[in-house]
Design a protein around this nucleic acid. Sequence first.
DNA 1: GACAAATTGAACGCCTCCGTTCATTTGAAC
DNA 2: GTTCAAATGAACGGAGGCGTTCAATTTGTC
Lengths: 200, 200
Amino acid sequence: MGRPADEAKREAVLTAAAKSFFEHGYAGSSIEQIAADAGVSKVTVYNRFGDKRSLFAAAVERECEQMRESMKVPEIPSGDLRDRLTAIAEAMVAFLSRPKMIQFERRVAAETEHEPAVGAAFLAAGPHRMMRAFAALLAAMHDNGEIQVENPELAAEQFASMCKGIGDLERRFGAPDDLKRNRERIEGAVEVFCRAYAKR
Amino acid sequence: MGRPADEAKREAVLTAAAKSFFEHGYAGSSIEQIAADAGVSKVTVYNRFGDKRSLFAAAVERECEQMRESMKVPEIPSGDLRDRLTAIAEAMVAFLSRPKMIQFERRVAAETEHEPAVGAAFLAAGPHRMMRAFAALLAAMHDNGEIQVENPELAAEQFASMCKGIGDLERRFGAPDDLKRNRERIEGAVEVFCRAYAKR
DNA sequence: GACAAATTGAACGCCTCCGTTCATTTGAAC
DNA sequence: GTTCAAATGAACGGAGGCGTTCAATTTGTC
């Protein structure tokens, strides 16, 4: 009976909440502003999410879902080993460099100490998922006989870490993107990885 | 003439401000609480720092100074190349793993977008300084003939990044320290680095 | 059309905070 | 001991936020 809840409004609130929380931080966001941005009454926000903390948690969870979807396992292009590694590296770096991702990381990290579950959810949905997929890919390459890796998880971490270098750190602290340096990092990572692990 | 300003109070305020800002965030910190923690009147805080933003900037600057001092360039132990690299890696990881450093990074990153100068100051005082020192060390090793690196800056970044792996990321998002994994990362980094760069 | 639940707008109490003002006290330099 | 700036405590105005209440209104379902 009665009027059913408008799910579109729920989405609108979450979108506005995510935008505000990840732009202005938790303490710097107000529910009234979020409600206004969502074109919704403040009471509706409270009726549906109950609490500021709960709203924050819901926003993070939704963002993690979107991240899960947008993170395709890098498909294996055919061709030279070096070319394939380069393609994967470029996809990874591009994914991690998006300004949205950087801000999302900043905010989630800042709130993790108050809400450890939030940090754990992010790790599981993002980095850990990505590393597992990449490690599986390396294991397959090992079975193919292209490379020789005893510890695919470690090798995956090493490759990804070299590709990022301190670029992600610099981005987090506002340094402008240096595309030339990124290219150097990727080429260097491929080179070192091949020297260490390529067969032949 | 008159009464001289009490510099001890200035220090106390900065200490309390740093503690609060890096623990509760900028918006989550109140000047009244900071003044109380410092055992000082609120008016004194305003007279000396003028403004909340300025106080935050001063706290970050002071923290960067302390970081500069506490960051000794890892001295070169004698011995096997692998042993020396391992020792350096251990010092680096230990330095970056301190909970204080993690929280400091979280907060500074979160405020960098409002105050880009803050992020730049941190980068210059911390990571960039460290990488420069390590790159110089690698260049010296190259001149020694121990290793063969054309691009010491890149090689330094690669080694440091492999040592960290995604461990720093996991720490930022609240995952507990995994000492065994850290050891694996360091050993793996030394191994890959030597395979790629060691002469003979 | 009648019902019932969702939604709204406005107001409320309560709290915290920023930044300022001012009369008063403290304490070092002269 | 006088002088003068630093420091204090208390209070203020203005603003904003959280979470709640309530009557009024929408908007689906029956």
